[in-house]
Design a protein around this nucleic acid. Structure first.
Lengths: 153, 153
DNA sequence: TCAATCTTGATTAGATAGGTCAGGTATGTT
DNA sequence: AACATACCTGACCTATCTAATCAAGATTGA
């Protein structure tokens, strides 16, 4: 139901590594692979997805490498997750629709809203944790997401 | 990352059906299969898991069937999910551990707490939605889960 | 007894996740 | 210019998991 896949885990670690790098110094994929013990080719693949999402910049050729596109405080875990994990919050209807075009419980019962709301909660949670906080864990995130529970369904 | 699988979706629908049944009337697996358009044998399998979790009771033989073990207001979606979805919140460490026994980011950075907290978050959310509310969607759940955000990491 | 119905556990087909591979393109250094 | 370094692209493979099926049995009501 809730599962942190390897690509999400690795992407987060790579981003933390880059964030920890002094000023705008670059790190090569090779080096990151060694540091995090993630398969070399897989690192490439993940970094490309992060680059296409605009989270990292690359420089090719000798002495090339990667660096963050934004300040760590402006990069959320939510963006990282969405960059590498295409179908993060999978739609529920119309998967498993009860025969016809719409869910058999589409009116009169509240199953769907429960899943939808759960998805929104998870998404908002992740959008409220920044890379900067991962470097300084003591900051905490909970204070900033309290507002999520202010609205009624 | 977050995915409502068929077993969770079906189990929830079946439980809602049973909850909607007047007093303690039973419904056969056959009937539920037809009502929800879920494969007959699959309904069996799911109902057994719900039974072993103590959420439904069964009566065998002719005129047999299933009914809820508890009042709808005392059955949470969390319990349903845990009943049918064995590894709901999968551990992250030590999957993908960076080579040695412990995660390379095990101290000094806050990756793991983010996932752990997310898991707790989802779990608590689901534990605060009851079957009774699914029958009367207007009640809403958000008010009751506000406290989840009171504690700091 | 017989039919309805739950019970158990094994098995299978398809999808997905995780990782690999082969080739290409750009850039710094000599 | 040549070469090594390093990013770039997309196809490919494979083990695991999900969803569903199947087969055989055990209870119970009429």
């Amino acid at each position: 139901m809730l599962r942190i896949g390897s690509s999400v885990e690795y992407a987060t670690r790579l981003m933390v590594r880059l964030a920890a790098e002094a000023d705008g110094a670059t790190l090569s994929a090779e080096r990151m692979s060694a540091l995090e013990n993630v398969p070399r080719d897989y690192v490439d693949q993940i970094l490309q997805r992060l680059r296409r999402a605009g989270l990292v910049e690359s420089r090719r050729g000798a002495q090339g490498g990667y660096k963050l596109s934004l300040e760590p405080s402006r990069i959320t875990i939510g963006r990282i997750v969405k960059a590498v994990d295409e179908g993060v919050f999978e739609a529920v209807c119309g998967r498993y629709s009860a025969g016809d075009t719409k869910c058999s419980h589409s009116d009169g019962c509240g199953i769907r809203p429960v899943w939808e709301r759960l998805g929104l909660f998870v998404e908002e949670y992740l959008d409220n944790v920044t890379l900067a906080e991962l470097l300084e864990p003591e900051l905490g995130v909970s204070a900033r997401v309290k507002h999520l529970f202010g609205a009624e369904r």
